[in-house]
Write a protein that binds this DNA or RNA. Structure first.
Lengths: 229, 229
DNA sequence: AACAAAACCTGACAAATATCATGTTTTCTT
DNA sequence: AAGAAAACATGATATTTGTCAGGTTTTGTT
């Protein structure tokens, strides 16, 4: 599928929207469409990125390996988001790995075009800057959550996050299904602890489950828990 | 003391170095020098910032209040760093409070000048972007540390950080003296836990203390601890 | 449909950390 | 230099969380 970036709705949600016509044409001509199956890696921590990845469809987990061999998921990147921007800007190997959580389709945009636009088009640079400022704020929030909230609160928060950001299907199940291990890696805890807490939520009627799929049955109770009541 | 920004060495270390002469003159004319005593707040979380704070001297702690009433220190801002940039860029109230750790001297630069330069001077915007990209990476690292390292490892790391970033005085004491409570708030733990661990380090000979002041006596042991040996 | 692999689950226990209570030392202020 | 306030310290205990070990269920593949 060779579509033109100029017509891509995805662009509306990321910094590429601040590009002008010529720039978009350049991107369009140079971009390479890539598909990744669930579980495949888009790129690995420490790799040099030759461009950025604009997500057309699907969700990827951005994670970092810790000294003890566990992955910490730092962010979930969804349709409209751009991955790898940070590394391209500072011209360093990326500090994060990206792995497809479900089937993912991205457009790879060579870094030269991005860098070139950043030098020439202040609006574009500013837009990138705004997105990064937003990510930084979110990262600050995560730091505070990690250090000040209990694992139980963080699991509850993660479930609400999944509902609020990815919605539910016709039956009420969270549209984005993560494995218990992935949830544990988002929350920063042991997989068993995560499973135990999810079981507890189920027992208390806050959620219902079917296999790995989850229905949020009592949003208020979960929210109260997050808030410390 | 009314010095000119054009001559300020501090500027060399932050994004203002990408400003051209006219821009610097504007900053110089509009800036207001402010001094804060140890413990005073420069600004509070949720406040609207009308400009940025360029640190001439001293150290401030940037922190965020958590639901349970504890402060989490997200970053220490030192000579040469600019505080409040993020909030000015996204035009939101700041998500962090800034409190002087020791006596602090800053130049307050009205946001109009910053915003104006960002629209006109791509080099400046790009420089700001680079700094923010760097901060974001550091934040990612903190997230991983918080979730994957033990409190003991994080305390050890914090002590080494203080040594590496602020150095030691003639007697070998860490130049930047933080209270045990502040260290606990950097590390994200209870003050008592922090004190206990510091006592343990002292008992084991990794550090020496005199009041709140600390000498790192065995850097290698501390580093090994951080690395999980 | 059968099988293997992966994911999920649970119990028992150990380790890490928080909390509460109380006393001591240091630092600051006058 | 004295007194008050803040910071530091430590014990006892409770809670949270991780680890190991062994199961069961679900999922994917042929």
């Amino acid at each position: 599928m060779e579509t033109r970036c100029e017509n891509c709705i995805v662009r509306k949600f990321n910094s590429l929207r601040a590009m002008n016509k010529e720039e978009l044409k350049q991107v369009s001509d140079a971009k390479i469409s890539k598909k990744f199956k669930k579980g495949e890696a888009l790129f690995e921590e420490g790799e040099k990125l030759n461009g950025v990845y604009c997500v057309r469809d699907g969700v990827s987990k951005l994670s970092k390996l810790s000294a003890n061999g566990k992955d910490q998921i730092v962010k979930l990147a969804t349709t409209g988001e751009v991955m790898g921007q940070r590394a391209v800007i500072v011209e360093e190997p990326t500090n994060l790995s990206a792995v497809a959580v479900n089937d993912v389709e991205v457009c790879f945009v060579p870094k030269e075009i991005i860098v070139d636009s950043m030098h020439k088009n202040p609006d574009f640079t500013l837009e990138v800057l705004r997105h990064m400022a937003h990510d930084l704020k979110e990262a600050d929030d995560v730091i505070v959550n990690m250090s000040q909230k209990t694992v139980k609160q963080r699991v509850a928060e993660a479930l609400l996050y999944l509902k609020n950001n990815y919605g539910v299907d016709e039956e009420g199940y969270l549209s984005l299904t993560l494995s218990r291990e992935d949830i544990a890696n988002v929350v920063g805890t042991a997989t068993e602890s995560c499973i135990r807490i999810i079981s507890e939520f189920k027992k208390k009627g806050y959620i219902k489950t079917s296999g790995k799929r989850i229905i949020i049955a009592n949003e208020k109770e979960l929210q109260d828990l997050v808030n410390g009541f």
